[in-house]
Design a protein around this nucleic acid. Sequence first.
DNA 1: TGATATTGGTTGCATTTGTAACTATCAATT
DNA 2: AATTGATAGTTACAAATGCAACCAATATCA
Lengths: 148, 148
Amino acid sequence: MTEKRDFDLQHFLPYLLNRAAEASSLDFQRYYKARYGMQRTEWRVVFHLGRYGDLTAKEICTRASIHKTKVSRAVAALEKRRFLTRQPFQDDRRHELLSLTKAGKAAFDDLVKEAQRFDETLMGAFNVTERDILRRCLRHIIDAGQGA
Amino acid sequence: MTEKRDFDLQHFLPYLLNRAAEASSLDFQRYYKARYGMQRTEWRVVFHLGRYGDLTAKEICTRASIHKTKVSRAVAALEKRRFLTRQPFQDDRRHELLSLTKAGKAAFDDLVKEAQRFDETLMGAFNVTERDILRRCLRHIIDAGQGA
DNA sequence: TGATATTGGTTGCATTTGTAACTATCAATT
DNA sequence: AATTGATAGTTACAAATGCAACCAATATCA
């Protein structure tokens, strides 16, 4: 057992993860904010629609583990700025299918390119084994937390 | 170069980091919130004081990369609940040295024990090599972001 | 059919946060 | 000493967030 005095915040995984998350997001965040006036949840919504096709708000909530109020507001904001449109189902009018507009798709394309660039810069510091382990560990942590 | 269609959010490092950070923090967060009514910044301040000895607010800001207003409010809250005290310098009264009270130290001791337990649970899923690489990669990402 | 529960989504309110402007103290320059 | 410029820390206001209550549409089942 590690002694209390030896317990360093620099070794505490949640702390490291939080700081790394902040650090790694900063530049990219600045980009989509400056360029499209988007916030993180909005970018995530755009990403899900661009990558996985038209979805309902609920599906985005589930896939991305984002609370429905956050998604609701993000969708409203994106709709107002004409990045997406809603289309209610005929058979169940509670659902609304969200689709990116042309502008939304263009933003998605651009942001994906930018994201890839960021990812390559970040990952560039690591070799293949490290990248692989890093991704696998993170994935595992995410999935472990999912149940709770 | 990866194609745009292949670019999966599940491989985008900032996204993985953010989700892993959230997932890994949740349980611990609940603990210090329920037990001491603390928020994350407050816990971090307590931790820094407990681990590294008395510091000024500024020093905590620098070490932990937290904005001074956040630290200021956390310190005020902790002082009110008597987890710490302030003591202005004689030679420069702009600085205030922060020290944990007995209650603050007790909370720190308890939280460190709890943090260790959480860390072991999280890390328990990985072998020594993986742990090492994980920590090193995270450290690197944090330090790389630091300059910007 | 009608009463109740569930589900997708929104809204209102209290709390948290970020930004910028502010106070107070000290340092440097004249 | 007086002016200017940093620096530590606080505060005020706007924006973002979380939570709970809410509405409308559907499902369930007496």
